[in-house]
Design a protein around this nucleic acid. Sequence first.
DNA 1: CGGATGCTTCGATTAACGTCGAACTATGAA
DNA 2: TTCATAGTTCGACGTTAATCGAAGCATCCG
Lengths: 229, 229
Amino acid sequence: MKEGPDIARVAALIGDPARANMLTALMTGKALTATELAAEAGITSQTASTHLAKLDGGNLLRVRKQGRHKYFSLATDDVAAVLEGLMGLAAKSGHLRTRTGPRDASLRKARVCYNHLAGDMGIRMFDSFHGRGFLALEDENLQLTRTGAEFMTGFGIDLDSLTAQKSPLCRECLDWSARRSHLAGSLGRALLARIETLGWARRDAGSRAVIFTQRGEAAFAERLAVTPV
Amino acid sequence: MKEGPDIARVAALIGDPARANMLTALMTGKALTATELAAEAGITSQTASTHLAKLDGGNLLRVRKQGRHKYFSLATDDVAAVLEGLMGLAAKSGHLRTRTGPRDASLRKARVCYNHLAGDMGIRMFDSFHGRGFLALEDENLQLTRTGAEFMTGFGIDLDSLTAQKSPLCRECLDWSARRSHLAGSLGRALLARIETLGWARRDAGSRAVIFTQRGEAAFAERLAVTPV
DNA sequence: CGGATGCTTCGATTAACGTCGAACTATGAA
DNA sequence: TTCATAGTTCGACGTTAATCGAAGCATCCG
């Protein structure tokens, strides 16, 4: 009778407060261990273990074992995108955990969304790439054009190592405000990494904010977020 | 401690099977009454009533009272977008309700996503509009360009009445496969309505499929989904 | 080899919530 | 007015699932 994918299963997985806290913690893009996630959610390590097993079973997480540690991260960009969408809905219905403070403003401006740049600056960069013809919508996927590839290489991105991976190079990701999209995919990740390497910005420890230096923001506007005439 | 919007609340709302069934039923875009939704979810009208109250309280639904009937529809396009995203995740983790059949194929090709066209054909139309310069990414929102407006008027869309509404004209909506976006917003709605008026396609009763006639599909490819050279 | 740390499994408790029968209100039809 | 239909509220039942203590593995370190 019911048609289509079983949406309730996934939603219920995200719907538990403890699990939701873990997932939002993973939105920074950093891989966290089970105990770290337990602390993040405010539960004991035993319960965290069962929760993490469920999330993994639902294909929401990617797990890597290293020695006696188990590192968890979000499975794909799609998961991050859905989480962002849910945040948008929750924010709109007014159920904010904390009232909007100064930290919130910086989150809107620039933050990390599963390892790539989100927020106003992320959107501006995406728009600029699009307008300059670096990205093209081809078939089913977002593609990097030849001029785009040249630009990326010039910016210090090693495209060869990126294309060697099996994960998609470019992808769209809907933003917090759920209005516009920014660049995800391995290229998005590489760009943020490059921005950090260049010293233009650094991640705020313990939150998702990305804090640009004054020089970094100017350089960003000049090279990445150019508005094409 | 916890920062950001309360995502668990919303996800838990969608996470109940009965409520999820109601929401997916509303993805057709049609407004349904409480009893219709109860039947759709396979529960009694009393339980449906409490569920609908909760969904409404979570700002996921829009409610209109007409006589002794209460009509429910999805609150905004954002809600539909999140539901689509969740379907993508659920589909990927392999938990399909029904094994993929012929109906599933037609859903992928063209279906209705909260009143606008989704699926392959929706994506192709969006790409074409983008490539022909009908849509521009401006500031925070997707904008209809002047040439785009001319085209729409020529296609028989009454733009004046659309812009008179307060709801946004253009919006992106992430697709099932969660890879690419198609056109939502009031313009997206109007386009699908126009397509139906022209007799190019009709909605399948009881599913989300949009079935094009042979002539309709040819006309669609010729006028709406032109690939710009 | 101990001893410590990270994670998992088991069992029992507890709390939350979906469910429906029954009774109630409101609107529309005869 | 009388009856029927749509929807809501209440109370009780039952199931589900989150939680933690305790015990059990696995891994690393000295």
